Amino acid sequence: MVDYRNYKVWQKAHLLVIEVYQTTDAFPKKEQFGLVSQINRAVISIPTNIAEGCGRETQKELIRFLYISSGSAHELEYLIMLSKELNFINDEQFSNLSSKIEEIKKMLASLIKKIKQDL
């Protein structure tokens, strides 16, 4: 078992959760149970699955949860793009969030690859 808090990718994902929650707080109230809920579920799934995977018994199980986390990052990427197209976020917010999501996706892919090599 590894302490998930030691992973840089978890740290960045945790900070992204806070930023996304602050961003979606400004969305129209009519989206509270629609897009906002979906975005918040996707973003929180990223660090949550890293943490859950670290609590599992084997490296193969950790990899499985890292893949789930990566899937959530891809989902979030689309939802942020949709938010921009609906004018719920501006260009600067979109660019900022997109670059952070992209970095997390790359970090997850690298971590998966490293763990697979160590198996």
Rank of each mutant, 00 (worst) to 15 (best):
Q22R: 11
K113R: 10
L111Y: 11
A109H: 08
C54G: 11
F65E: 06
S69V: 06
N49P: 02
T58M: 03
K105M: 09
I50M: 08
Y7E: 07
K8C: 14
Q11H: 13
I50Y: 04
K113N: 15
I101Y: 02
K30I: 15
R41Y: 04
T24L: 09
I18M: 06
L66C: 03
K84E: 01
E103R: 01
H74V: 02
L15P: 01
D25E: 05
Q32Y: 15
A42I: 01
L16N: 01
Y4D: 01
T48V: 13
I80M: 13
V43H: 01
L76E: 02
E52S: 03
L86W: 11
M1L: 10
K113T: 11
I63P: 00
L119I: 15
L119N: 15
K29M: 09
H14S: 10
Y7K: 06
E92Y: 14
Y67E: 04
S98W: 10
L76D: 00
S95P: 01
H74K: 14
L86Y: 13
S70P: 00
L62T: 13
V9P: 00
V43A: 06
E31L: 13
D3R: 10
I115Y: 06
N6S: 13
T23P: 06
F33V: 15
L16R: 00
S83K: 00
E19L: 13
A73C: 09
E57W: 03
D118W: 08
E31C: 13
V17D: 04
E61V: 07
Q32V: 15
G71A: 12
G71Y: 02
R41N: 14
E57P: 00
F27N: 08
Q22C: 08
V20Y: 06
D118M: 12
I101L: 10
K114Q: 14
D3E: 12
I39T: 11
N96E: 15
K116L: 09
S98H: 14
Q38S: 12
Q59C: 00
Q93N: 13
D91M: 12
A51G: 12
Y7Q: 08
Q93V: 15
L82I: 10
I46F: 10
N49A: 05
M1I: 10
S72G: 08
S70I: 01
I68W: 03
V9C: 03
E19S: 15
A73V: 10
S98E: 04
L35W: 02
I39Q: 02
S37N: 11
E103S: 14
S95G: 06
T23R: 03
D91S: 15
T58D: 01
A26R: 14
K105H: 05
N87M: 09
Y7R: 02
A26T: 14
Y67Q: 10
T23W: 01
Y67W: 11
V2I: 13
F33S: 14
S70A: 12
S99I: 12
K30F: 13
F94K: 11
G53D: 11
I44P: 02
Y4A: 12
K105T: 04
W10L: 07
P28Q: 03
F65V: 07
S110Y: 05
I50C: 05
I112D: 04
V9F: 01
L79E: 00
S37A: 12
V43S: 00
Q93K: 15
Q11W: 13
A42V: 03
I101H: 04
S69T: 04
Q38Y: 09
K113G: 08
T58P: 03
L76G: 06
E61R: 05
D91G: 15
